[in-house]
Design a protein around this nucleic acid. Sequence first.
DNA 1: ACGATTTAGTAACACGATTTAGTAAAACCA
DNA 2: TGGTTTTACTAAATCGTGTTACTAAATCGT
Lengths: 358, 358
Amino acid sequence: MPKKDKNKAPESNGSSIDSAQQKNVSLKDVAASLKLSPTTVSVVLNYSPLSDSIPQETKDRIFEAARNLNYRPNYIARSLRNQRTHTIGVLIPEMSEGYSAAVLSGVEEKLLQEGYFYFVASHHHREDLIERNTQFLVARCVEGILAIDTPIHHQSFLPIVSISGHDHIRGVTNIVLNHERAAHLAIEHLHRLGHRKIAVIKGQEFSSDTEVRLETMLKAAREFGVSIQDNWITQLIGDDPSPETGYLATKKLLSNDTEFTAVLAFNDISAIGAIRALRENGFEVPKDVSIIGFDDITAAEFHNPALTTIRQPLKKMGSLGAEHLLQNIQKNPADTLSYEITVEPDLIIRQSTVEVSK
Amino acid sequence: MPKKDKNKAPESNGSSIDSAQQKNVSLKDVAASLKLSPTTVSVVLNYSPLSDSIPQETKDRIFEAARNLNYRPNYIARSLRNQRTHTIGVLIPEMSEGYSAAVLSGVEEKLLQEGYFYFVASHHHREDLIERNTQFLVARCVEGILAIDTPIHHQSFLPIVSISGHDHIRGVTNIVLNHERAAHLAIEHLHRLGHRKIAVIKGQEFSSDTEVRLETMLKAAREFGVSIQDNWITQLIGDDPSPETGYLATKKLLSNDTEFTAVLAFNDISAIGAIRALRENGFEVPKDVSIIGFDDITAAEFHNPALTTIRQPLKKMGSLGAEHLLQNIQKNPADTLSYEITVEPDLIIRQSTVEVSK
DNA sequence: ACGATTTAGTAACACGATTTAGTAAAACCA
DNA sequence: TGGTTTTACTAAATCGTGTTACTAAATCGT
């Protein structure tokens, strides 16, 4: 007798997350309310080919009941059945910087458009956390992995897209900046302003772009006949992205030698710290020393002085990364060979670089 | 005859995401490899009470086989069965600012610690996106929702924790700053420096803190006998968090009147824009006008001049929010009444405020 | 009028894990 | 020796969908 008691639909008629709704209604509940089978309801709600033979009147009743009971298909059950989670995993160094946030905003925009969600996990450049988080994401059945400034060491059975990654691994797609051009733009700009002695603050070893950034800069410098002496090269100090990394690096640089007339910083955030250090040591920026940043994060434009910088299209890199990952997910992983997408930098001239005075 | 063919364990012996592994191994595969039932394997791997009666030798074999085959329980299947997803949804205005990123880093730290993952969805303060994203998160079976600077309008059958939210809704827990004290610290500091005429840049209507921030500031001003005239109150202009919002607001402010000696900005990011506007109009900061920010984002310390600001413990607010959400998830939602957690601000004195000169 | 097709559905299984309710054999007890 | 308890497991049901394979009735074609 109490057979139906528990399946009795609650009389919810307000918003979808109304307080009256205690338990989510299932396909079975909808079916029961219409005295149809769950199969029929499923077939109709999914516009399956099978529903061709269901009369419109029945379909209408089903749609109406589903709406009235506020039926929402349970994504978990659907994922299990379809072996599709519409979820990807995103690996980032940390959740605290202009860089990651900018890329993520592009990722999110594209993913939500396509009905995907994402898990984020940050690893602080620790090898063990990268491995552990990858495991977790795989266990959660993500359909692919997007690695942002995160080294990838081995091929995976899942599609992987790496943003700013430079490892060439089978099956991994890289989204990278045209570093040659970025370096050309930066050095050319300084050269045109008369700078011939340039200091460089390179990134930490763990940053994917560190090596290529330095090498392309050195190459461009040779081409323009600009000098970058070894003792004008310094490295960011510290693990977390903060202006302090550039501040400490520049302090060290200044204790070596001060013959240079311009500084190429690894990124905007460290350029800001570098300016502080230069100022503390009695150098006006840009009067005494010009400085050029990298990335063009929001803070760059409004810093004092406003930063001249090489812009990376961070948001676009994020959405491109997401786009290609989704594409690769559609394909058979076996025939997804590694390929590379290149995006172009821009030189943004502001106030931190001027003609050399010496 | 081909009965076992497809269940034949792949001879994977490398890393967990080795290329050799095509298909995830299931409980059934492990069981088959040992000629045991999935039940037994499950019981042992989960340290279920039932496993008391299983001899150690069998347990060892099971653990070993699971490790060798690199068995990872399928989270989707487990979630369906247990009706627990260990996943929460996080609503944020956007993924681009120091504020959200700082709070999220606290959220993430706490969640990963507890074995939870999270979905992020941003809504750009659009009512329809808040509703839609909430729907999506519910369909994805999140166990609770963490709303960061996001208005919540109705009670839900899911636990909700709101960070910097001020709506008092049954079942919603609020994590808020001690705004009274924040205002007291800010006004007291300016008062001590001799400022008696203070301009205020208030937040946009859509920011949760806008109203309470302004009101507590006005109240503190009255207590200290400091004047905040109506035409010294301006509002951030624009939707996305960027220094430009404060720049435009301050431009408008300066076109009204310039009698004030200090500016209270809604947040650090707009304070940075305000400084630019003041400077363009011929005011030196802090010589002519002092300015005080709010939040203490990373950029504040290294700005030029370094920003005096009221620090919100953003990361802590994130981890507290996550902590209370997880607590409320354990409880019966019915007996989770709304309550409020208050965190304390700090005054961080740097270079953007000095004694009044006039 | 009779076989073939169309209509309108449904029963049963699968996805991969956990849990409930057993069972068959061994050990224990009196 | 006969009954109870313990040991060492396993079959079957379940979570909520989606799909495959079926059926029973109605309609069609000739």
